[in-house]
Simulated assay, not measured.
Amino acid sequence: MNKILISVATLLFVTACATTEANMSNNPNIVTVKDIQHHNYILAEIDGKTYRTAKNAMSPNISFGEKMHVSGSMCNNYFGQGELKNGVLTVKALGMTEKFCADRTLNNLDRKIGQLLSDGAKLTLDNDGQNLTLSNASTTLKFALKDYVN
């Protein structure tokens, strides 16, 4: 009898976990690692305003590698080990190069991306997965999918 109860309890637990995972991956409002891993996104908007890269300049970006390694550039390059939980991305030990950029907007973006990733940024993807938004109470950065390899 005990073996049957343990088997039933285990089955219920596994089913509940699988259902929760399935609900999260089917919920378009919750971004998962699978949704963003191995993708590169370039900056398209800052707080609702279109961002245009200066001619011959690299576009600010964010990329997601193996095991949620986050990297990218604004004025400076940044990198760190990310954690994605319930659609919120956090990079606690964010590293960043420290050069001065003549473009004030890019210097300001270094601060914004650092704050977003350190404090936790809510991630959203549009329906076709082409636009990724990182946001908190004061900043919204929208990125367009631009993978290195199509």
Results as ranks from 00 to 15, higher is better:
57 A>V: 04
41 Y>S: 03
26 N>S: 02
44 A>Y: 09
23 N>I: 11
83 E>F: 02
8 V>H: 05
104 R>N: 12
92 K>Q: 13
148 Y>G: 12
75 C>L: 08
149 V>A: 12
93 A>H: 12
132 L>H: 10
44 A>I: 05
17 C>A: 15
148 Y>P: 00
77 N>S: 15
148 Y>S: 10
52 R>H: 13
141 L>K: 07
129 G>Y: 05
140 T>Q: 15
11 L>M: 13
38 H>G: 08
148 Y>K: 13
25 S>T: 15
116 L>M: 06
122 K>T: 12
85 K>H: 14
63 S>Y: 02
70 V>S: 06
96 M>P: 04
130 Q>I: 01
149 V>K: 13
79 F>E: 13
72 G>P: 08
89 L>D: 04
93 A>Y: 05
59 S>G: 04
37 Q>P: 00
132 L>W: 11
115 Q>M: 10
103 D>W: 04
112 K>D: 07
79 F>R: 04
83 E>K: 14
37 Q>N: 07
119 D>L: 02
14 V>Q: 04
13 F>W: 09
50 T>D: 01
41 Y>T: 02
65 G>A: 09
72 G>H: 06
44 A>T: 07
126 D>F: 08
81 Q>V: 00
140 T>K: 14
136 N>C: 01
130 Q>P: 01
84 L>N: 00
26 N>M: 09
35 D>C: 02
48 G>N: 08
33 V>D: 02
91 V>I: 02
146 K>Q: 14
26 N>H: 10
35 D>H: 07
42 I>C: 02
53 T>K: 11
23 N>V: 13
126 D>E: 00
65 G>E: 07
50 T>I: 13
51 Y>I: 06
146 K>F: 01
95 G>S: 10
68 M>L: 14
138 S>E: 08
27 N>E: 06
79 F>T: 10
74 M>T: 15
15 T>Q: 11
46 I>R: 03
113 I>P: 03
23 N>W: 08
69 H>W: 02
100 F>N: 05
103 D>M: 01
13 F>K: 04
40 N>S: 11
69 H>Q: 07
2 N>L: 15
103 D>H: 05
106 L>D: 02
104 R>W: 03
110 D>Q: 06
116 L>R: 05
112 K>S: 05
118 S>A: 11
112 K>P: 03
123 L>E: 07
40 N>K: 15
10 T>V: 15
31 V>Y: 08
108 N>Q: 15
34 K>F: 09
116 L>S: 06
107 N>V: 05
128 D>W: 01
77 N>D: 12
130 Q>K: 12
93 A>G: 03
55 K>Y: 08
44 A>V: 01
123 L>C: 09
4 I>C: 05
18 A>W: 12
108 N>P: 00
4 I>N: 05
112 K>G: 01
145 L>Q: 13
68 M>H: 08
142 K>N: 11
50 T>C: 02
20 T>K: 03
107 N>L: 09
6 I>W: 06
54 A>N: 00
106 L>W: 06
56 N>H: 15
57 A>W: 13
2 N>A: 11
103 D>N: 12
65 G>V: 00
86 N>H: 14
87 G>C: 12
142 K>T: 11
15 T>V: 15
67 K>I: 05
